[in-house]
């Protein structure tokens, strides 16, 4: 199930940000069974490099990534750890 989720996250991020680097790690197994994971949503780590993040604050970058995830933040994703960099920071 989480392989599909990683593919879904990859597709959304690729479409929205045309990243020059993108790593997505499924961290769900580490969190299985803890209180927050009961809803069934996965934990994922994302490292993304895109020109879209140039000149944006950290809060703005995270909001952009969350927005790209859309409804998935309410269902498939319990936690998304984000490192969002512009190409000159990477």
């Amino acid at each position: 199930m989480n392989e599909n989720r990683v593919a879904m996250i990859r597709e959304k991020l690729t479409t929205t940000f045309a990243p020059t680097e993108l790593d997505i790690e499924d961290d769900s197994a580490k969190h299985a069974g803890h209180a927050g994971a009961r809803s069934g949503g996965g934990h994922f780590n994302v490292r993304i490099v895109s020109a879209e993040f140039s000149g944006k604050s950290l809060v703005e970058r995270h909001r952009m990534v969350y927005a790209a995830m859309g409804d998935a933040m309410q269902s498939d994703i319990h936690a998304l750890s984000i490192q969002a960099k512009s190409p000159d920071e990477a």
Binding site: L58, V59, H62, S81, Q83
Partner: peptide
């Protein structure tokens, strides 16, 4: 809003 866990730790 400063951020969530990632931003707080990074700062």
């Amino acid at each position: 809003l400063v951020g969530g866990c990632d931003i707080t730790l990074e700062m």
